[in-house]
Simulated scan of single mutants.
Amino acid sequence: MTDTTQAAASAPTISPDYSAYLAREAERDRLAAELLPANKAALFGALEAAGIVIVLVTFDGCGDSGQIESVEARDAHNNDVALPADAIEIAKAPWEGTEPERQRLPVHGAIEEMAYRFLEQTHGGWEDNEGAYGEFTFDVAARTITLEYNERFIDTEYSEHEF
Rank of each mutant, 00 (worst) to 15 (best):
N78T: 08
L56S: 15
A85R: 13
T58F: 05
F44V: 03
N150C: 09
V55P: 00
I111Y: 00
E69M: 10
A32G: 14
A8M: 15
D86C: 05
Y149C: 06
I88L: 05
R143A: 00
D17K: 05
G61V: 01
F153N: 09
A142Y: 02
A87P: 02
T137S: 12
S10D: 10
G51S: 03
A87G: 06
A7E: 14
D29M: 11
E48P: 01
T122W: 15
K92Q: 12
N78M: 07
F44L: 03
C62E: 10
P100H: 03
R74M: 08
S10E: 13
N79A: 09
I90W: 00
A82Y: 06
G45A: 08
S15F: 06
A82V: 06
I88D: 01
T98I: 09
N129L: 11
S70T: 04
A115P: 02
A87C: 09
L36A: 14
G51E: 03
V107I: 07
M1L: 12
E157T: 14
E89V: 11
S15G: 06
L56C: 08
A11L: 14
R102H: 13
E69R: 14
V71Q: 02
A87K: 04
E34N: 08
F118Q: 11
G125W: 01
V53N: 00
A41T: 13
D75T: 04
C62K: 14
A46M: 06
D29F: 13
A26H: 05
I90F: 00
E25M: 12
S65Q: 13
T144A: 01
K92W: 09
I54L: 13
Q121C: 05
G45R: 03
G51H: 02
F118V: 07
R30A: 15
D128G: 06
E27Y: 05
E25Y: 08
E89K: 11
F163S: 04
Q6L: 11
A32M: 03
A8G: 13
H123A: 02
A41Y: 04
I88C: 00
A142C: 07
D17P: 02
Q6V: 14
R152H: 13
Q6K: 09
R30P: 07
A49M: 07
H161C: 07
V53I: 07
I54E: 01
I54G: 02
N129R: 15
V107P: 03
T13K: 15
A33R: 14
I14A: 11
M114A: 01
R74G: 00
R74Y: 13
A85V: 12
C62L: 09
F136G: 02
Q6Y: 06
E99Y: 10
L83F: 15
Y18S: 11
E89D: 07
D17H: 02
H77T: 13
Q121F: 10
A42G: 03
N150F: 03
E99W: 11
F163R: 12
A50L: 08
F59L: 04
Y149L: 01
E99K: 15
N79W: 05
Y149I: 04
A11T: 04
G124E: 12
P106N: 10
W95C: 09
L56R: 15
E72L: 14
I68D: 01
G125I: 04
E99C: 11
L36H: 09
A41K: 08
I14S: 12
S65T: 12
S70K: 10
N79D: 15
G61W: 02
R102S: 06
D60K: 03
K40T: 09
H161T: 08
